[in-house]
């Protein structure tokens, strides 16, 4: 755990994530005891309950696990219609995100890019990845 710096966005556990976001790097937690990945950050491993969790750089690649296109006005940050998805990163963790630069379907491969925001760190969003090869685990899910 790091001490919270009031000049940096986030709470005391998420500040490393947002600091990396400034450099357009997507960070997630990794357990050096059992190898489990997790997101959002916690001060322990959800799988083996060890204290040995560390920040690592995600490759920022994954697949769309589920998807919805929103047609009503919810937020001032995004104009409808827009796509909200759960992305499953190749490391196995899921993030809520928007899809930008076109639409994606469930099981499409996506990659992280960054939405600039006024006064606060950039936000990870995703777009269709150049590489469309699906990992075996995802192809097997639809039987």
């Amino acid at each position: 755990m790091t001490d919270q710096d009031p000049t940096i966005y986030g709470d005391s556990l998420t500040q490393p994530f947002w600091r990396a976001a400034e450099r357009h790097v997507l960070m997630i937690q990794h357990c050096s005891n059992c190898g489990h990945y997790q997101f959002y950050p916690r001060p322990f491993c959800l799988q083996c309950e060890s204290d040995h969790v560390e920040w690592i750089e995600s490759k920022g690649q994954g697949v769309v696990y589920s998807s919805t296109t929103v047609h009503l006005s919810v937020s001032t940050e995004v104009e409808p219609p827009y796509q909200v998805v759960l992305v499953e990163l190749d490391e196995g963790v899921r993030l809520l995100a928007n899809i930008v630069e076109g639409d994606c379907d469930i099981a499409d491969r996506v990659e992280v890019i960054w939405r600039q925001r006024e006064g606060i760190p950039p936000l990870p969003v995703f777009r269709r990845a150049a590489d469309k090869n699906l990992p075996e685990s995802i192809r097997g899910a639809r039987s």
Partner: peptide, 22 residues
């Protein structure tokens, strides 16, 4: 506020929609 709100998922209907899509 950090990890969900910025993406504009309606609450709770957008959550139900993600479940329905899956």
């Amino acid at each position: 506020a950090q990890f969900e709100t910025p993406y504009g998922l309606p609450m709770p209907l957008g959550h139900f929609a993600l479940m329905a899509s899956r």
